[in-house]
Simulated assay, not measured.
Amino acid sequence: MKLCRFGALNAERPGLIDDQGRLRDLSDVLDDIGPDQLSEDIFEMLNGIDVEALPIVSGSVRMGAPIAGISKYICIGLNYSDHAAESGLPIPTEPIIFLKATSAISGPNDPIIQPPHSSQLDWEVELGIVIGKTAQYVSEDDALDHVAGYCLMNDVSERTFQLQSTQWDKGKGCDSFGPIGPWMVTKDEIRDVHNLEMWLDVNGARMQTGNTQNMIFKIPEIVSYCSRYMTLRPGDVIATGTPPGVGMGIKPNPVWLHPGDTVQLGIQGLGQQTQQVVKHGS
């Protein structure tokens, strides 16, 4: 199933996307979609409800991040060998972990806000893992038992900030740099998560084309590896890396985002996002 949250910022309501692509209001069934609603029991209950009896939300509506109360936004760097090559960096021998501030989280179609002093604003389409059950020192064989589902993510990056030190966090964690959604798809609905087409356009021009089959480290290994170094809790999200085609990697002249630009991205089965770039304070 496809679970989402919709409505004004900080007042989102739980929703479900039905088989016809219509948004249904789950407010009479769930208080929200967050850590407490990501259990198999909740999913089983939702599978048993009469979807046709749920109210249809019509008209234009803002989509929020599909998960409330995310405690950790974890990222895996350079997880596609061709992206590592375009970045001029060696292929990693084990997953590279960094964190994005949870204050960066935004809805899938909310604007990307360019910070003051930013000059190298970039994009990264990524598959996100949503943790559904606490994971600590889990094996690769058991890792998927701790996954609730998957979502689309844009790891927006400010390369000037990112490359000022060996730590990437400040170039990745600015407000609005973590669009998630439009929905979370439960893992039972994805036949092969390691064979999903992914793409990103800037102003209508295709910049990234890839497939999750080209990940260096697959999802069971990523979840198991992260759980060795931090307890993964329900609602935590893990961005699994991006294919080639980021602005920084374009030769000989990198391409950066500017106010007025439009970014569109999608992953097969996980929906699409559209973001407008705006200047801070505008």
Rank of each mutant, 00 (worst) to 15 (best):
E189L: 12
G181W: 04
I190A: 06
F217D: 01
G210S: 07
E221T: 14
G241T: 02
K172P: 01
C226A: 15
V246A: 11
M215R: 11
M230K: 05
P182F: 04
R233N: 14
C226D: 03
G245A: 08
I219R: 02
V223L: 09
P179S: 09
E197V: 12
P182W: 05
G247Q: 08
M207R: 14
G173Q: 03
G171K: 04
T240M: 08
M184C: 09
S176V: 07
V193L: 07
I238Q: 01
R228M: 15
N214K: 13
N214W: 10
Y225M: 10
V246P: 03
D201Q: 13
G178Q: 02
G235N: 01
W183N: 04
G247C: 08
G171S: 09
Y229A: 13
Y229C: 10
M207E: 09
T242N: 02
F177D: 01
H194T: 09
Q213C: 11
R228F: 10
K172D: 00
I219K: 03
R233V: 11
M248E: 14
P182A: 06
N211F: 07
L200V: 11
E197K: 15
G181Y: 00
G245I: 03
Y225C: 11
Y229W: 13
P243G: 01
W183Y: 15
P179W: 06
Q213M: 12
E189S: 13
P220H: 06
P243C: 02
I219D: 06
G245E: 04
I190L: 06
T242F: 02
G235R: 00
Y225A: 06
N211A: 04
E189V: 13
